[in-house]
Design a protein around this nucleic acid. Structure first.
Lengths: 123, 123
DNA sequence: GAAAGTGTTCTACAAATGTAGAAGTAAATT
DNA sequence: AATTTACTTCTACATTTGTAGAACACTTTC
């Protein structure tokens, strides 16, 4: 099952922190911070959905992600590409490159990456 | 306000069709098709949210999108990039290029696009 | 060891979402 | 004109989501 928008936000914090206690997560939120119980509920649901694990220290828990950000994001992205670009990553890439405001330097970097990819595919 | 997952799907059909009557939309869904009333409800909500317009022909309506797919998608994408790549499109691009399985030809095309962008930025 | 501080579990509830029946209306068909 | 077709509008309801109070439990601190 997928995460909801709010759960995803919390997941972002968790990915950044890698492992975190309730208080670390609360700190990560900007004002106005949600109630502790709110975060607890979200964590419970996320854990039920299999996205979050935890280690108990007494009654307190140290939470950590069970799915990698990259993996989660990849799935997200391929969904988007399927939906919006008729499943054509190339078409998506083209759109992205044109629409996003990349600096000349970033473009050069990107070009280098692609050249690297081309080379590695060829070998 | 944003569209929900299901509303987005319907929106996809509408974008593809450009203008559509209820029956066209229903046809666009794969089996098992939703009930007519289900789609009607979604259209109503989407219209309330300002994403869909319609022209009346008697009591029947021809629906059409009020927001361009590109615009909607862009917003989506920048949200993703903000969330997952710390607001760095370049970092995102790099991830995308590595993770997605583009064919050598697609990579060449992409490279060409980027070169074009570099040139146009330089001018 | 009584009081604070932290976090957990339970329970609750409003809003948003997914889905659709019932009933009405307009247009097409017999 | 009566019937069928193709919607639309209204109403309804189960889930999921966003938010959090109340009450309980473990730790730390005076």
């Amino acid at each position: 099952m997928a995460l909801s928008k709010t759960e995803e936000q919390l997941m972002q914090h968790l990915w950044k922190l890698e492992r975190a206690f309730m208080k670390d997560l609360l700190e990560a939120f900007p004002e106005p911070k949600p109630a502790t119980t709110t975060v607890a509920t979200l964590l419970k649901r996320m854990s039920d959905k299999g996205y979050v694990g935890f280690k108990k220290y007494g009654s307190v828990r140290e939470y950590y992600p069970l799915v990698k950000k990259e993996a989660y994001f990849s799935k997200h992205l391929s969904g988007l590409i399927k939906g919006y670009f008729d499943n054509s990553p190339a078409q998506f890439a083209s759109f992205f490159t044109k629409e996003t405001d990349l600096s000349p330097q970033e473009l050069e970097e990107l070009k280098a990456i692609i050249e690297g990819e081309i080379k590695s595919k060829k070998k």
